[in-house]
Simulated assay, not measured.
Amino acid sequence: MPPPGRHRTPDQKQPGPLRRRRRRPSDRPLPRERSPATTPRLHIDWTACDGRGLCAELLPELLVEDDWGFPGARDGAREPVGPRALEPMAERAVRRCPAPALRLLS
């Protein structure tokens, strides 16, 4: 049996190597810019939260408790963002959360 590719007639071309499509500059995702004056967003996972209210006690500048003890953003945002000076306190609230329901998103 002849090796593959030898059974072609001379007028048939052998397929070239596969080339990957080059991305145009407009296809590239834009890098996310962090504002130097704000901290990363504080994400609250409502399915994991037990409603103990510890995060609202540790971070009263950004979070308030509702009637059942669940945290909410003081300004009503879905993911609160505060000044950079609050970043250490936000990290502390994330670490001290009894149910891992808080995360800092960049």
Score class of each variant (00 low, 15 high):
residue 9 T to V: 09
residue 79 E to H: 08
residue 30 L to P: 05
residue 19 R to E: 14
residue 36 P to K: 04
residue 76 G to H: 06
residue 91 E to Y: 13
residue 60 P to D: 11
residue 11 D to K: 00
residue 87 E to F: 11
residue 96 R to N: 05
residue 76 G to K: 09
residue 51 G to V: 03
residue 47 T to Y: 06
residue 19 R to L: 12
residue 71 P to F: 03
residue 23 R to F: 15
residue 79 E to C: 03
residue 12 Q to H: 00
residue 101 A to I: 04
residue 2 P to C: 01
residue 101 A to Q: 07
residue 31 P to T: 05
residue 32 R to H: 11
residue 32 R to T: 12
residue 11 D to G: 00
residue 44 I to H: 02
residue 24 R to N: 11
residue 41 R to P: 01
residue 65 E to G: 07
residue 83 P to M: 11
residue 28 R to K: 14
residue 23 R to G: 14
residue 106 S to H: 15
residue 86 L to G: 06
residue 71 P to A: 01
residue 85 A to E: 15
residue 53 G to Y: 05
residue 46 W to K: 14
residue 84 R to K: 13
residue 68 W to H: 15
residue 49 C to K: 06
residue 19 R to K: 14
residue 89 M to P: 06
residue 37 A to P: 00
residue 35 S to D: 13
residue 41 R to T: 08
residue 70 F to A: 05
residue 17 P to N: 01
residue 24 R to T: 13
residue 93 A to P: 12
residue 17 P to K: 02
residue 62 L to S: 04
residue 94 V to H: 07
residue 35 S to F: 07
residue 67 D to K: 04
residue 33 E to S: 09
residue 52 R to K: 10
residue 27 D to V: 09
residue 26 S to T: 07
residue 66 D to P: 02
residue 88 P to Y: 01
residue 104 L to G: 02
residue 84 R to Y: 05
residue 29 P to Q: 07
residue 76 G to A: 05
residue 18 L to C: 10
residue 50 D to K: 13
residue 20 R to H: 07
residue 42 L to G: 02
residue 44 I to R: 05
residue 59 L to T: 12
residue 43 H to S: 13
residue 46 W to N: 12
residue 103 R to M: 14
residue 30 L to V: 15
residue 11 D to M: 00
residue 94 V to A: 08
residue 88 P to I: 07
residue 83 P to C: 09
residue 100 P to I: 07
residue 73 A to C: 06
residue 99 A to H: 03
residue 80 P to N: 06
residue 61 E to C: 03
residue 26 S to G: 08
residue 12 Q to S: 00
residue 2 P to A: 05
residue 102 L to H: 00
residue 57 E to C: 11
residue 12 Q to G: 00
residue 53 G to S: 04
residue 40 P to W: 02
residue 61 E to M: 02
residue 23 R to H: 15
residue 44 I to A: 01
residue 35 S to P: 02
residue 38 T to G: 12
residue 24 R to W: 12
residue 90 A to G: 04
residue 13 K to M: 02
residue 99 A to V: 02
residue 88 P to G: 05
residue 105 L to Y: 10
residue 50 D to C: 09
residue 67 D to S: 07
residue 106 S to D: 15
residue 1 M to S: 11
residue 50 D to H: 09
residue 32 R to S: 07
residue 66 D to C: 02
residue 16 G to I: 00
residue 27 D to W: 04
residue 69 G to L: 00
residue 101 A to H: 05
residue 81 V to S: 12
residue 103 R to V: 14
residue 60 P to Q: 12
residue 84 R to E: 13
residue 85 A to H: 13
residue 66 D to L: 00
residue 32 R to P: 06
residue 40 P to G: 14
residue 4 P to W: 12
residue 96 R to E: 08
residue 36 P to R: 10
residue 43 H to G: 09
residue 79 E to R: 02
residue 24 R to G: 09
residue 70 F to M: 10
residue 98 P to G: 01
residue 65 E to V: 13
residue 26 S to F: 10
